[in-house]
Design a protein around this nucleic acid. Structure first.
Length: 480
DNA sequence: TGAAATGTTGGGGCG
DNA sequence: ACGCCCCAACATTTC
C-alpha cells in the first residue's frame, strides 16, 4: 500500500494553480489534504474576526471541492509544529507538501517542521505560488532588498518569469484510511451573539468558485476603466479580489496571466492591465519588505518614529472606528468596513490619514482595527500600507502629505453616491456641501433633514487646526 | 497614491 | 488710450 502525501493548506485554499498539490499527484501517492487552525504558535498574528468568518466559508468551499474530487479535507486544531508531525506519523505519510508562507513566524515554523519530519524520514517540501516573486529572488545591484517600489517593480518584472497557472486536478487519489478530522463547527470561526456577519454574507462569496466569478466579472467589466476609475469609491471599478487573494482562493499568477490574456491585442485594455499588475506587485513589495524587516507590523521602519508624540484618545478612536467622525468620506469608509469587511482602497488611505494625522493616534492602532475587521486582512499589505500613510515606512508618503477629507471626497466621490450609500442620514444634502456639511447653511441642512450634532456628528476635530498640529509634530521629528 | 500658500499672468472693469 | 485694481486661472513653492 502506497504511503500518502499530506498536502498542508494554509493561505492557499484552492485546487487550481497549486504546485504542492500538483507535485503530490505527480508522485502517484494518495493525498491527505489538511488544514490546521493554529491559534497557538507564539509570535503570530492570530486571524481577526472578519478573516475568521471568511476562513470558515472558504474551508467549507474547499472541503466541498475536495469531496467532488473524491477526496476529503482533514481539519485539525493546535500548534502546527506538533499537529503536523503527529498526523504524518499517524497516516504513515511519506511527505508533507505545502505552499511557502511569508509571515515572520512562518520561516521558523517551517524550519522546525523540516527537522522534525526529516527526523521521521518524512520529506517536507515547500512550493511557491502564494507570491509572484520569492522575496529573496528580487535583489538590488548590490544584492540587498529594495526599499522603494518603482525599482522593485522594474527589477522584478524584468528578471522573473511568472509560470503559467496549473489546472485544478479533477480527482485526487484517496488514502485507504482517512485520519480523524475535527468538524468545521468546532473551529468556532463564526460570530455567535451578536451575529454581525449579515453584511458580509450579502457582499461576498468566499471560496475558489466565488473568486473565479469575481475575476471574470472584473476582467469583463472593469479592467478597461481600471486605470482611470480605480480611485472612485462610487463606481464598481476595483477588482474586489483582495479577500480571495488573501486566502489564496486564487493565485496571483492566475490573476496576472488572466489579465494579460484578456488584454492581449487590445490597446484599450493596455493601461488598465498595467495598473492592475502594478497593484498586484504592491502586494509583492509588501511581502518583500516584510521578509527582510520582520518587525514591520509592529515597529516603524524609520526608527525616529519611535519617539513620535502619539495621542491616546479612546473616544476619538471609537468615533473613527464606528464612522462617527463628522467627516462624511471617513465615516462612509469606516461604515463600509464595519458592514462588509471591506473598504475601497482610496478611502482606506483617507481614513488612515485621518486617524494618524488628524487624530495623532498611532498607526498600529489603526492597523489592529483593520486586521480585525477586514476580510482581506493581510499582514504584509496592512503593515506596509499603514506605515506608508504614517510616513514611517520604507517608500513612505512624505510627512507633510495630509489628506483633506472634504477635498478627497469631492474629488473621488463627486456626485456623493458613496457617502449617500453609507451615511444615509446625509443623503438629501446637495452635492456641493455633502462632503462638508458643517459649511451648509441652516436652511439647506433643515431641508435635508440634517441636524449637526444630532442626526450626524459635528467634526470631532477641526481639520485645518489638526493639519497644522500634525505638520508641527512631524516636522519636529525631523529635527526641524 | 496632497494641500495650502504664494507667485505669476492676463483679461476685464473702471476712472 | 492708459494705468490701476481685482481676481480667476494656472504655476510654483512650501509644508
Amino acid at each position: 500500500m502506497s504511503q500518502p502525501i499530506i498536502v498542508w493548506f494554509r493561505h492557499d485554499l484552492r485546487l487550481h494553480d497549486h504546485r504542492a498539490l500538483v507535485r503530490a499527484i505527480a508522485e502517484g501517492a494518495p493525498i491527505v489534504p489538511v488544514y490546521i487552525l493554529d491559534d497557538e504558535t507564539p509570535g503570530q498574528w492570530r486571524a481577526g474576526a472578519a478573516s475568521r468568518w471568511w476562513l470558515h466559508h472558504s474551508l467549507a468551499a474547499l472541503a466541498t471541492d475536495l469531496a467532488t474530487a473524491g477526496s476529503k479535507l482533514i481539519l485539525r486544531r493546535g500548534k502546527a509544529v506538533e499537529v503536523l508531525p503527529a498526523l504524518a506519523h499517524d497516516c504513515r505519510a511519506r511527505a508533507v507538501h505545502t505552499s511557502r508562507a511569508y509571515q515572520p513566524w512562518a520561516s521558523n515554523l517551517e524550519e522546525e517542521l523540516n527537522e522534525r519530519l526529516h527526523h521521521d524520514d518524512i520529506a517536507f517540501r515547500r512550493f511557491s505560488g502564494t507570491l509572484l516573486f520569492e522575496p529573496e529572488v528580487v535583489k538590488t545591484k548590490d544584492g540587498g532588498p529594495f526599499k522603494v517600489y518603482s525599482p522593485f517593480w522594474r527589477a522584478a518584472t524584468a528578471t522573473v518569469d511568472i509560470p503559467k497557472p496549473e489546472p485544478a486536478p479533477r480527482t485526487l487519489p484517496a488514502p485507504s484510511r482517512w485520519p480523524h478530522s475535527d468538524t468545521l463547527a468546532s473551529f468556532e470561526l463564526l460570530p455567535t451573539r451578536p451575529d454581525w456577519a449579515g453584511g458580509l454574507r450579502e457582499t461576498w462569496t468566499p471560496g475558489e468558485a466565488g473568486a473565479a466569478a469575481r475575476l471574470k466579472t472584473f476582467l469583463k467589466s472593469a479592467l478597461a476603466g481600471y486605470a482611470d476609475d480605480r480611485n472612485r469609491p462610487d463606481l464598481p471599478a476595483t477588482s474586489q479580489l483582495s479577500p480571495h487573494l488573501a486566502h489564496g482562493e486564487v493565485s496571483p499568477a492566475t490573476l496576472w496571466h488572466a489579465a494579460h490574456a484578456i488584454a492581449d491585442g487590445k490597446p484599450a485594455l493596455a493601461k488598465g492591465l498595467e495598473v492592475f499588475c502594478k497593484e498586484l506587485v504592491w502586494r509583492e513589495f509588501s511581502y518583500h519588505l516584510l521578509s527582510y524587516w520582520p518587525t514591520l507590523p509592529e515597529k516603524p521602519f524609520r526608527p525616529e518614529f519611535e519617539n513620535f508624540p502619539w495621542v491616546t484618545a479612546p473616544e476619538l478612536l471609537h468615533a473613527w472606528q464606528r464612522g462617527r467622525t463628522g467627516y462624511p468620506i471617513v465615516d462612509a469608509g469606516m461604515r463600509e468596513l464595519w458592514h462588509t469587511g471591506y473598504m475601497h482602497n482610496r478611502v482606506r488611505m483617507i481614513a488612515a490619514s485621518f486617524l494618524i494625522k488628524d487624530l495623532l493616534i498611532p498607526w498600529q492602532t489603526g492597523e489592529a482595527w483593520f486586521w480585525d475587521t477586514l476580510v482581506d486582512a493581510d499582514l504584509a499589505s496592512n503593515a506596509a500600507s499603514w506605515q506608508w500613510v504614517a510616513g514611517s515606512g520604507a517608500d513612505a508618503a512624505p510627512y507633510f502629505r495630509v489628506f483633506n477629507p472634504s477635498l478627497q471626497g469631492a474629488k473621488f466621490d463627486p456626485a456623493g453616491a458613496y457617502v449617500r450609500k453609507w451615511v444615509p442620514e446625509l443623503a438629501h444634502l446637495p452635492d456641493d456641501v455633502l462632503h462638508r456639511p458643517w459649511d451648509a447653511g441652516d436652511v439647506v441642512l433643515r431641508a435635508a433633514g440634517v441636524t449637526l450634532g444630532k442626526t450626524y456628528p459635528k467634526p470631532i476635530v477641526d481639520h485645518g487646526a489638526a493639519r497644522d498640529r500634525a505638520l508641527a509634530a512631524f516636522k519636529a521629528l525631523r529635527g526641524g
